[in-house]
Design a protein around this nucleic acid. Sequence first.
DNA 1: TTGTACGCGTTATCAA
DNA 2: TTGATAACGCGTACAA
Lengths: 370, 370
Amino acid sequence: MLRRLPADVRRGTTVRRAATIADVAAYAGVSKATVSRFLSGRSDVLSETTWKQIQDAIAALDYRPSQIARSLKGGRTRLIGIVVADVTNPYSVAVLRGAEDECQRAGYMLALCNSGGSHAKEQELLAGLRAYRIEGLILNSAGIAADQVSDALPDGLPIVLLDRKLPPGRFDFVGLNNIAAATEATRHLVGHGFGDIALIAEPITGVSVRTERALGFRQAIAENEGCTGTVIEVDLHQPDAMQQAVARFLATPSSRRKAVIAASGLVTLRTVQAIQSLGLHMPDDVGLVGFDELEWSALVPPGITTIAQPTYDIGVAAVRNLLARLAGHRDEPHSTIFTGTLIERGSSASEAGLRPMAVPAPAQPAAGLV
Amino acid sequence: MLRRLPADVRRGTTVRRAATIADVAAYAGVSKATVSRFLSGRSDVLSETTWKQIQDAIAALDYRPSQIARSLKGGRTRLIGIVVADVTNPYSVAVLRGAEDECQRAGYMLALCNSGGSHAKEQELLAGLRAYRIEGLILNSAGIAADQVSDALPDGLPIVLLDRKLPPGRFDFVGLNNIAAATEATRHLVGHGFGDIALIAEPITGVSVRTERALGFRQAIAENEGCTGTVIEVDLHQPDAMQQAVARFLATPSSRRKAVIAASGLVTLRTVQAIQSLGLHMPDDVGLVGFDELEWSALVPPGITTIAQPTYDIGVAAVRNLLARLAGHRDEPHSTIFTGTLIERGSSASEAGLRPMAVPAPAQPAAGLV
DNA sequence: TTGTACGCGTTATCAA
DNA sequence: TTGATAACGCGTACAA
């Protein structure tokens, strides 16, 4: 009754070919169709005997169904693509975790690609994902045009934009309420005595996140009579651009306390570097609120005030959106908007408030000290 | 001559089915085989006329070959799996970039999975990747046993272990020379006047990276007569464990300067938190060298001395290793070992050296200041 | 230079 | 309850 697995000899070593459904059928003495029924869990239509035979056969041959063959037959690859502009951005990774969990829950696999901010690479990646017949796409675009996205992908493929919108608004979207977040950051600074504020962002050039954050910032400035606001665009690829920008902003005479809103995690990093290089101190020489909560936000004295995003939930929402489309939802493009949370630390403290490098009260005064 | 694409009507909207090679053949008035030849770029065997006809047909129908069908036929999915224990670890992401680039160069796609440190999830992921018939696997294991890995995957599947070795040494490996790196870190501290050093790591429990770093540490301590060394294991899931461990270490009386070597990026983060919470200052109260260069290493005063890994190259090497196996290499398990680089900053300074929060000489004294 | 026909591993539709 | 057979989209012998 035991039949050996088909084996072919290459390079002197015997390499067993992976067992197929036909092998299992032969081993169990049943037809492929029956095995297929077993795989679909149709225990109601199978006799207990054959059920067990097949079970044994599968175990004996170490058989695993080929998702490739399944995909070809059924057209359902159970693959979801996600293209991010920058994997090294903690935001992307954090979102990924949520997306991944939700995918696994639904039996999908996530194929992650990194465009590195390049349009050309993004195009290639979309073509690649298309070749693998992904069923849906999460796109954190490098700034490609909506038409190019449509052209690169088959009609009707569910797409959800992540964090960055694309102009014509034809796609689903998941991301932050940037206007509200920027407004909150600005009001927070104003409320803590800062009156001359700069929002520093990478070149805005139509990137929706940046546009919106700048807009919310301007609105909040406008509603406060005594305040001045500037939007500064900095090309982070140029080595000293940030330091010069910060220096110039701080050098302009003003009677009010100055502060910076950093429009992204990367900008926050570079802003802090610049501030330190210039030998300045937060919040006295300059206040700071940064978008995105980072693991080191609390570590750099006097602690950096940040706007945290619910990244995990954003990832989950993106996948849910896709799953809904796959389940047949044919509504108009839908946006899922989350709210940011301001986490207050020393970098935006009032003059009377926390001082930089103040000795923090230990959580457990001396509990650990012998 | 124009034949329309097959279309089926669902939910009131006409959704074009993706064009197949047969559609292209029909449109161009040739056989499928001829189109297939076109796709393989065999311009030498095709007449110029048919070449153009096919080109037109493909453009007109917006045809894209199905990688799924190709995979089924040829058994080559051009898919490489990578399972990491923690996507949020900057190390993993940095390695990913190298791996991804090298994959793209070789025409492979990378399927990233995150086990989150869970054995069970790791097993599931391996099963999933197997179902998709990946051609190779990069495994940053959550600590699963080598046998389980072998069992979960088909015989002969090229596997390269990343960062963490698995006991029996049956697999290829790419990672750091941890012993040398730990030795260098220790010697560096000793050379800067520290004589009572603790290596702090997460519970070692057989994780090769931790074992090796502890080993290198002990060796270096042993070669320096006047020095004391302790290995402290801290469970980072317990909220105050780190702070207590640091406090206890610093409380033990000693005539020599004390320092900590943090055995990973995460441990570095937590150690710095603990030091700050205790109101202590580096390097006077305690010195620090941390494994893994992090974006904020230079930002936390007085700057944290780190051991940087060539992460990008490690990623590239992992994929190259796989590609070599796929090309037929049948040698013994091979290890590719990289060397860490110590980046010196204030946290490990000699007593006479840098002081914390010393005003740094600005790179460009006042160039940017109007 | 081109076409015919088969097989890759599944699932689904029939019949039995 | 089970089996034979036809797809799914592509590559590739082999034949023309």
